[in-house]
Design a protein around this nucleic acid. Structure first.
Lengths: 354, 354
DNA sequence: CTGTTAGCGCATTCAC
DNA sequence: GTGAATGCGCTAACAG
């Protein structure tokens, strides 16, 4: 086997095309200063030899790394829906790779380590911008990033202090719709089995849950927080359903909690939807495949990812029109059997006959 | 707000410490040639100012990018367990980040695009090595990678042509255990609802399934292939169970298929495990939370990821002892209610009394 | 042990 | 239009 040939440099291409390095550089970067004929020849040579500029060299001169960073806190394994996250990343990438932006991934243990990662990336010139996910209540990361001056975009915020732009997700409206749906189908006492309360989006959902139920005049609206584990979901379900005035509908934050909940309901000798209706905040294949199929909130994680990437690129290009936060479209509530019960709808005040 | 200060260079650190660039470089890279006292002072200065070497410059001189690449085929969304993949990546990262290796991620549409990505990465000097996942039958990627000369490690192979090293997963032994378990609990006709047959690991499982059942003298062993969708799993289940001599146990390739299968079984008026036993090839929270809880194969995806990373680093360091493939430990079969049926075990030839 | 020198691959001033 | 010269930030040959 012949020794692997040395990596081709711009100089090689220039020589092969019989021109100067400058000419080659101009041609390959689409800049003026070369005749069309020469440009074509240079491009042909480069293409023929499969030349690609050396990344480090380009970064060293140009300054931009062509890379977007994403840090995942280790505990993200337990956070919310994994499938949502993977679909989100796919959406992100679909846009980033179109724009020849790479994605640098890092898994860390703590927010402190995450911030340190940002600093290192920033100083080392490894990334041009980062995407911030899983905002927490009193999250130090937006401020830290803003102070660093590292371009950043929050996926999901918004940032309470508005120091960082965000592609925000509205958690209140979907929750309002869920609560309204339950109210309209005759429920008067409902409960919400949620994930970790320190997550900002969970906190918003909890608030919207209570507010919505109150506004509709429901007599019961309880919230039980879990650590996203099956066991804690089962326990929460048991607790909720063993009370005297047990709720007639349960809302779960993801499919793992929902599956655990439905199993526990069955174990308690109750039926879904007859005794207890169930709604899950995430439409995965699991939700529709369950028996009974679960009423679920259908969010487009892929679109969310591409929206984030699109805006991030706009920020990098300096063409970001939006000043503050952009909002994702409100997800759809897919009604399935798990919330189709036979309850009497609440008596609506009928309009007096004219 | 003061203008953001220019990024600190090694030269700055050297000046601040009152030494030459060379001295600073040696000190900061732990190389001999500097007195301990000087070294300490330089490190102190660098640390105080939070200096981090510019990545591109380091790459340009050193040659190594300190980056490992991972390409995911877009269809990986439908491939197997997403949670397995995310846990795998976390395991990968846990080792990589310890060794200050970054992970570069790319999502593509096709194997061709994937190979092109490798080539570009290679030529641009973006990665030192790549991890190859989801090997297919007649996969062109190992050969392409070997030809490129880009260090690569297969996660899950092994490579049929042995051109690339692999941290292999044994699919045969687990399948043998599942089949044996079913045989031992009295089943004589079983079926396997698997994923896409062009995946190498699926092909191996199918083969082991047939072989195992044959060796145990079972009268029925059917395989139905799906596209990993709930609907195809439900359809396969319906087909399998509507035959005259329907199987008494079903093996599903992941939790999505299993959930769909269990639902379909119920819809057909059959019960699990009384009428049909169920085993799933992946132990997720879903499996244990289901009603009934599902007998499942428990694989440690995190450990798999860290094993892959560890070996990859050994390869990069040139200290890779293993010549060919290393094998992951065989996963455990967690027996739960879904496979606890009341069948008569096959009559074992009893040892003649002495 | 220290300072000088050159060069990694490319972009971008300048004169020609 | 083209070619020579300089520098990005760092490492690694050299002599001193």
């Amino acid at each position: 086997m012949p020794a692997r040939p040395r990596r081709l440099t711009l100089r090689d291409i220039a020589r092969l095309a019989g021109v100067s390095e400058t000419a080659a550089s101009f041609a390959l970067n689409g800049k003026p200063g070369v005749s069309d004929e020469t440009r074509r020849r240079i491009l042909a040579v480069a293409d023929e030899h499969g030349w690609v500029p050396h990344h480090a060299a380009k970064v060293l001169t140009g300054g931009k790394s062509g890379t977007v960073g994403l840090v995942i806190a280790r505990s993200a394994r337990d956070v919310g829906s994994e499938s949502f996250f993977l679909r989100f990343m796919t959406g992100l990438q679909s846009v980033l790779s179109e724009r020849r932006q790479a994605l640098l991934l890092q898994v860390v243990d703590s927010v402190e380590a995450e911030i340190e990662t940002y600093r290192t990336w920033q100083v080392a010139g490894r990334v041009d911008a980062v995407v911030l996910v899983d905002l927490r209540v009193d999250d130090p990361r937006p401020d830290a990033l803003a102070d660093l001056g590292l371009p950043a975009l929050i996926a999901g915020g918004p940032d309470p202090r508005r120091r960082l732009p965000a592609v925000a997700i509205d958690d209140r409206e979907p929750m309002r719709r869920i609560v309204t749906h339950l109210h309209d189908t005759g429920h008067d006492s409902i409960a919400y089995v949620c994930g970790a309360g320190e997550m900002l989006h969970i906190a918003r959902r909890v608030d919207a849950f209570h507010t919505g139920a109150r506004e509709l005049g429901m007599s019961g609206h309880m919230v039980m927080s879990t650590d996203f584990s099956s066991s804690s979901a089962a326990k929460a379900t048991r607790l909720l359903l063993s009370s005297d005035d047990r709720p007639t509908a349960l809302v779960y934050d993801n499919e793992i909690l929902a599956v655990a909940g439905v199993g526990e309901i069955r174990r308690l000798g109750l039926a879904t939807p007859a005794d207890v209706c169930v709604v899950v905040w995430e439409d995965t294949p699991i939700a529709s495949a369950m028996e009974p199929p679960l009423t679920a909130l259908s969010r487009d994680a892929f679109a969310f990812g591409s929206d984030v990437a699109t805006r991030l690129i706009a920020i990098l290009d300096g063409t970001d029109e939006a000043t503050g936060d952009t909002m994702e479209s409100v997800p759809e509530l897919i009604e399935r059997t798990s919330s189709r019960c036979e309850r009497t709808p609440p008596t609506e005040p009928t309009e007096p006959a004219s």
